[in-house]
Computed example of a mutant assay.
Amino acid sequence: MYVQPYLFFNGRCEEAIHYYEQHLGAKVNDKLRYKEAPPSDGPAANANGEQIMYSNITIGDTVVMASDDCVNQETKFQGFSLSLTVTSEAEAERAFAALADGGQVNMPLGQTFFSPCFGMVIDRFGVNWMVIIPPQQ
């Protein structure tokens, strides 16, 4: 058993996937649009057919699922962060800058008592991220 993040976007899932591909090296494993689903009388019946019903991407070694939420139009990413573990300060700076572009820095990258390089940012899509270099063991 394992826990897998599933992110719901407000009509910006495709944009987010593309951004993560360009800036975090994400790889798209699968992507389905609402218009590709069989006809339904459930919540998806009123969804925009061009929006993403399901996607599966890999960022580093982690699989993240994402879609445009057809039920809650005011989805917010609250109460969690995705933690991006990197191996060098240059990689941390590059990833942090990409995530901060159009977003909000909550804690700039810097050395902490638990990491040689750590920072917190909310990206342009509202997803909370922590970028960290693990401490040397």
Rank of each mutant, 00 (worst) to 15 (best):
M1Y: 12
S115Y: 02
F8I: 14
P39L: 09
E89F: 10
W129D: 07
L84A: 02
A92L: 07
H18D: 11
Y6T: 07
N106K: 14
V105P: 07
T75F: 10
Y2S: 15
P134E: 09
Q136L: 07
L109F: 10
A26L: 00
V105Q: 06
D68N: 00
Q104H: 08
M107S: 02
V63L: 15
Q137L: 12
R94E: 05
M65K: 03
G49Q: 01
E74W: 11
A44Q: 12
N106V: 13
D123C: 13
L82V: 03
N46P: 09
F8C: 15
F9N: 01
I59P: 05
N48P: 03
L24Y: 01
T112D: 10
T87A: 14
E93P: 08
D61Y: 13
L82A: 05
L109A: 10
E93C: 08
N106L: 15
L24A: 07
K76E: 14
A97Q: 13
F113T: 09
L84M: 02
G103E: 06
G126A: 06
R124V: 02
A95E: 01
C70D: 06
T112Q: 11
L7E: 04
R33V: 00
I59A: 04
M53T: 01
S81V: 04
N72S: 09
E15F: 01
D41E: 15
Y19P: 06
V121P: 00
F80I: 06
G25M: 06
I17T: 08
N48H: 07
S83T: 10
T112F: 09
G42K: 15
Q51C: 13
G103C: 07
F9L: 01
L84S: 02
M120P: 13
D68P: 00
C70A: 12
F125N: 03
P39Y: 10
R33I: 00
Y19G: 05
A90I: 10
S88R: 04
P38S: 13
G25T: 05
P5N: 04
A16S: 12
E14T: 01
Q4L: 14
